[in-house]
Design a protein around this nucleic acid. Sequence first.
RNA 1: GGGGAUUUAGCUCAGCUGGCUAGAGCGUACGAUUCACAUUCGUAAGGUCACAGGUUCAAGCCCUGUAAUCCCCACCA
Length: 868
Amino acid sequence: MKFASSYEPGEYESDIYAAWEASGVFNPSVPTYPVDNNEDGIDDREEEFSERNTYSIVMPPPNANGNLHIGHGLTVALEDSLVRYYRLKGKSAWYVPGADHAGFETWVVYEKELEKHGHTRFEYSRDELYAKVWDFVAKQRGNMELQLRALGASCAWDDLTFTLDENVVDRVYTTFEKMWNDGMIYRGEKLVNFCPKHQTAFADIEVEHKDEKGTLWEIAYDDIVVSTTRPETLFGDTAVAVNPEDARYKERIGKTVHLPLTDREIPIIADEHADPEYGTGAVKITPAHDFDDFEVGERHNLERIQVIAENGTMINVPEKYNGLTTEECRKQVLKDLKEQGLLKGEKKIVHSVAHCYKCGTVLEPMLKEQWFIDVQKLAKVAIEHLEAGEIKFHPANKQKVLVDYLKNLKDWNISRQIPWGIAIPMFRKVTPEATDEPDWIFDRRTNLTEIEKAGVKYIRDEDTFDTWFSSSHWPIVCTDWEEGNYNPYYPLNVMETGADILFAWVARMIMMGLYVTGEVPFKEVYLHGLVLDAHGKKMSKSKGNVINPMDLVAKFGSDAFRLGILRGRSAGMNQAFSENSVIAGRNLCNKLWNISRLVQSIVDEGEDGDVTTDNMGEDWICREINGCLEAVEQDMRNYRFAEAVETLYQTIWDKYADWFLESQKLYQNVPLLKRTLEILLIALHPFAPFVTEAIWQNLAWTDGFIATAKWPARLEFDPITAEEFENIRIIVGEVRGTLQALPGTNNAKKYALLYGNDSLIQENELLIKNLTRVPTINSVEGTPRGLRLALANHELYLDVPEKIVTEYKDALTERILAVGRELDALNARMMNPNYVAKAPEHLVQETKEQIDEKQALIKRLKQELEFI
RNA sequence: GGGGAUUUAGCUCAGCUGGCUAGAGCGUACGAUUCACAUUCGUAAGGUCACAGGUUCAAGCCCUGUAAUCCCCACCA
């Protein structure tokens, strides 16, 4: 006997994974290849796979430099369950693993590392820094990949895609070039959100807005009082705006006021932006440092004066303020205004402030030249395809949420001022006399800082792409999509990822997929929510409630973790997670292990043959297993993972182990035991790959890997016999319940079961005795003595002394009343003519039957009471 | 300001197209021990389905409103 008495995941998991990997079972069997047309111009292999017997899914690439967190654990549990399920279903399943260079994230980590060693980024060139980070990441890489293996991810490792792989960069450059030629890329001096600490700009989506307390100061610009939260920017003011409808200021429009602390005069302009209701109704306009003011400036052609430098200090301001930080400058300005009597008031307000999502620093709107994508066309096409329903969302409401987002999408800033990323393949003209040449040219040779074309010298843009620009190509690059090549894996069957990056990633993949390939990049989207701690709170380092998935895997096993994290979880919802559910998963694994141990021991001693059903418990378990398969298949189609796991849990434990195996201790049916166990193992395999494989390998009669087994067909059984077994379950349940309810302890050993003329009980005498653990079970002539068990409607009595039965009388009376109440409710329903007339006929019929049953039951119970 | 979601047992969640006598796991209480498994087995208690109206023969589910919690988006000086 190979089976130990309990399942120890640690003894099996890594060996099993290694064996899977070595055997290549995770590789897809259908290749992608260049189209090879035959004489008809039709690719014959395309015909062969026209039914799309493939299943593809790509992993949202975890940070190559980091460790997996609980969210990755959930991602893998979800994705791998899908892939394994469809692999068992016979699809050529391809799960492409990935690793993310995580541009900004990794850069932040590395920059800290630099600082720790007393260096700064400014000591090195872009290329030097890139090389340094590359080495840094290379050292860490592999860690994350090992963790994916520990989670059981059945991915095709040979196809691992790193976001800086050559083919990725190539594809990104190709798209960029296409966009450049299509006129969708422009270089613009715009206000961007800029982090003074990290010295980089962000896309809108990366900005975190938080409500904060602030002060609204009122400052006199001559006789006009303006309101502002940022007095230090007044040096950049180039106008004062008032609402054109505002009677108070109408006459002043077109005149000028004196800008305090300076010797400048600035115009008073009319603009809708000024809200007469707010503050004094007059607002200072600083086009270089405020998003609204920037737009006002555009409308009125105002000068943009930059007064805050990228490092957050003042520039282009009077000597006194020059070089101060914004904060110092604000204090000084307020002090000086006060002295001059220009500070007219201050109010405490709450307003929304933009922060760096990484370090929390307040972002500075900064005037910068950046590359932008004109997203109008991209968004429009995406909306069309979305509204046509080409992508199915789970949860469904996210489709509309996404469309709404796309409808309001603004141009996308793709320039980042960090060295770690894909270099932007644009070069700026430096040869001044070459006036006819364009200022910027596209060129893929970003390994060079300087190039020459037709005698004109160009230098490389030092910026890198926003990570989301390259990762928006993820389905394309992971499936090796190429123009003109037949690719049965694109579009992906499903994109599974976090609901939090619906906009940042999913939206952009859809736009880019359509732009590059003309097709949506995936057929369905499944979004998972956040994994919260046991009390429903967000996990965070500062709260100290972070759960490390690897700790749980080490402690309870990979399968236990997967089963645990899928439990009680549904699409798009932030849901709590605790060790308890992992423990429940661990217990199921051990249960299955011991079930297999028992089955193997019976198989060892019994005789093999054809799969048949010979007694009612066997028909019954076949019915239950078929129902389970049906439910799991339906749940998988609908991405209802928790429900699938729940169904399997109950079928394996409450049905197979507690009833079928118990009955098989009496009548062993070796072929059926083998077949049913195989089915349960295969059905659970997508969710608990290791324990099912470990058992599969330990069982004497199974071959190959369960990972590539065939999803089971339905079992044959006799439905009438299957239903009859329910009577046994009711009888056993009632005996157990009654024994517990009777006064006194340890009743099971005390009372015999007696029955009258009853063939069902007679045929299953021994089974009932074993399941109820009564000392004896006997048939008697005439009416047996003792307490009649009424529920099952069989001539069945517990041989209980009269004295005890009398004590039980109250319980019996209460029971009659309860059934009576149920009967009343049913009768009331039937008395309602509308119910009889309008409810579906089968329901009315059902109600009638229930009434009959209840009436009969009450009659039996009353008889019983009379006996007492 | 706009939008989304949630509210069901002590806890975490199911309950899909209304048919419910509202389920599960964990927890709790009581009982069981050499039989595959104490990571076990059995039994039970525990719910005005947030609240108020409405539609319907029938509402946890549909409609209207209210409250609470969470999240996202947005330029309010």
